[in-house]
Design a protein around this nucleic acid. Structure first.
Length: 430
RNA sequence: GGAGGGAUGGCAGAGCGGACGAUUGCGACGGUCUUGAAAACCGUUGAGGCUUCACGGUCUCCGGGGGUUCGAAUCCCCCUCCCUCCGCCA
């Protein structure tokens, strides 16, 4: 959520920012109107309340002095003011909640550095690494689900038996590989990022704090009986860690990393990517997240990107980095870099990480504040996050990229220690 | 799951219809004293909204939401969370 005061003080730049996304700016104007009305009503209401309070205090002192009989007219006056106050308060309340709804629909303003553009096609390709389209052999042009079945690493059919489509099951060395990836991702980041193992079921207000509710209700799994939601990403619990708290500037930036399962209903994508690991209802992910003062945000944004990129690079995958344009970044982001890995078997670029800077947009909603080192009062934090590693797509790209002509799959050197020394995935002996 | 007891400022803990945004203690900050420090003493010390160039004014917040009342931290209703005991359990 934006700061209403920004709309009050500089509505043009808010309009301009929303327009850069290609979105309608009428909500901004509506918010300005509602804000003015709410404030004028609230001012009237508050002065009525002040009068009521002072009358009541007088009544109180008359009672204490044993002059009860003199209090009657004051009581009546106060009661009459009370009626008026109640009406104003109701009206103000209605408008205030309308204002909040409008504010929640206004997206964040893209950063100045965020490239212009209306959609995916306008994203700026920053760099492509380690990629030569002609360098792939036929042995690599095999989709991971076939490799997985062949080598006994993946058992899609039985996962479907257990849970339905868009669920998978890793087996044997395939399961070890999935686990190894997560552990590697954690180990590489715990130098600065505190490892967190958060709950995967959270309350409604936790989902609301990051903006996953109410907008994406249909995307989330919900247990009605307990009113708990399965997290779609560790961003949800990690952001709420410091919710409603006031951090001291000396403890900033706060960096967290977490490995969790992530659950997504993928309601809008029925029929898309139904084979293999490209789109799943449940998957594992290691997430990096930072809370910081505004001035430190750009440096942290680079840091998280560098860490996510470094892992992909060290795994030996081909990848590219996109600077998403204003029309393609998420509603709460100010700037986002996507990392996409190339997966030769399916011949696709797969998004494996979105590294985003949210400014204070999320933090305002989640009420994350800090006390600046100098000066008084509190300020709203900035938030950033990105996946260090999302298992299924990286798993898929690895298996496809590392397939040898004999059908076996080479384990990247980095992962060998996490695989009990296993260097190669081969067909089970029969 | 059953039965009880709680939720108040950074923490501890009073207040149980009027003068309470809240006694007090601890902590933190500033000062006096001291060569310096400790101790002692004095003072300051929650968050947020609106308004003001500013000084200031004013409102909201005692777990959350509703209600009673001229007036609610205090009374009533609902919800959430925490604790203790019993049962069950990885």
């Amino acid at each position: 959520m934006l700061d209403v005061r920004l709309i009050r003080s500089d509505i043009d730049s808010v309009r301009a920012g929303v327009a850069r996304r290609g979105e309608d700016t009428s909500a901004v104007d509506r918010a300005a109107e509602l804000d003015a009305e709410v404030r004028s009503l609230a001012a009237k209401r508050d002065s009525l309340r002040a009068e009521i309070r002072s009358l009541s205090n007088e009544v109180g002192s008359l009672f204490r002095d044993g002059r009860k009989d003199e209090a009657g007219s004051l009581q009546e006056q106060s009661k009459a003011l009370g009626e008026e106050e109640k009406q104003l308060d109701e009206r103000a309340g209605v408008l205030a909640s309308e204002l909040r709804e409008v504010m929640l629909r206004i997206p964040n303003l893209p950063a100045a550095e965020c490239p212009d553009g209306g959609g995916e096609a306008d994203n700026v390709l920053l760099r492509t690494e380690h990629f030569d389209p002609d360098a792939y052999g036929d042995h690599q042009r095999v989709p991971h689900w076939e490799i997985g079945e062949e080598l006994g690493l993946l058992d899609v059919a039985r996962a479907v038996k257990l849970s339905g489509s868009m669920f998978v099951m890793y087996r044997g060395a395939g399961a070890a590989l999935a686990r190894a990836l997560c552990q590697l991702a954690i180990d590489r980041n715990v130098d600065l990022y505190e490892e967190i193992r958060p709950p995967t079921l959270v309350r409604t207000d936790t989902m609301v704090a990051t903006g996953h509710l109410p907008k994406f209700v249909d995307e989330a799994y919900h247990s009605e009986r307990d009113d708990l939601w399965a997290i779609p990403t560790a961003e949800v619990p990690l952001t709420s860690l410091a919710r409603d708290e006031i951090l001291d500037s000396s403890e900033l930036p706060k960096r967290f990393c977490a490995h969790t399962s992530c659950f997504r209903r993928e309601a809008g994508s029925a029929g898309k990517d139904t084979r293999g690991l490209l789109r799943l209802h449940e998957f594992d992910k290691v997430e990096l997240l930072a809370l910081c003062e505004p001035a430190d945000a750009p440096a942290l944004h680079d840091e998280i990107l560098a860490r996510a990129e470094g892992l992909i690079a060290d795994l030996g995958l081909s990848y590219r980095i996109l600077d998403l344009c204003a029309g393609d970044i998420g509603a709460s982001a100010r700037r986002t870099f996507d990392i996409e890995v190339y997966s030769p078997g399916v011949d696709q670029w797969l998004e494996v990480s979105s590294v985003s800077w949210f400014g204070d947009y999320q933090a305002r909603r989640a009420n994350l504040r800090y006390r600046p080192g100098s000066g008084k009062g509190t300020e709203v934090l900035n938030t950033l996050n990105g996946s260090a590693l999302a298992v299924p797509r990286v798993w898929a790209a690895l298996v496809e990229t590392n397939r040898r002509p004999d059908g076996s799959v080479a384990v990247p050197e980095l992962l060998v220690p996490y695989m009990r020394g296993l260097e190669s995935l081969t067909a089970p002996d029969r």
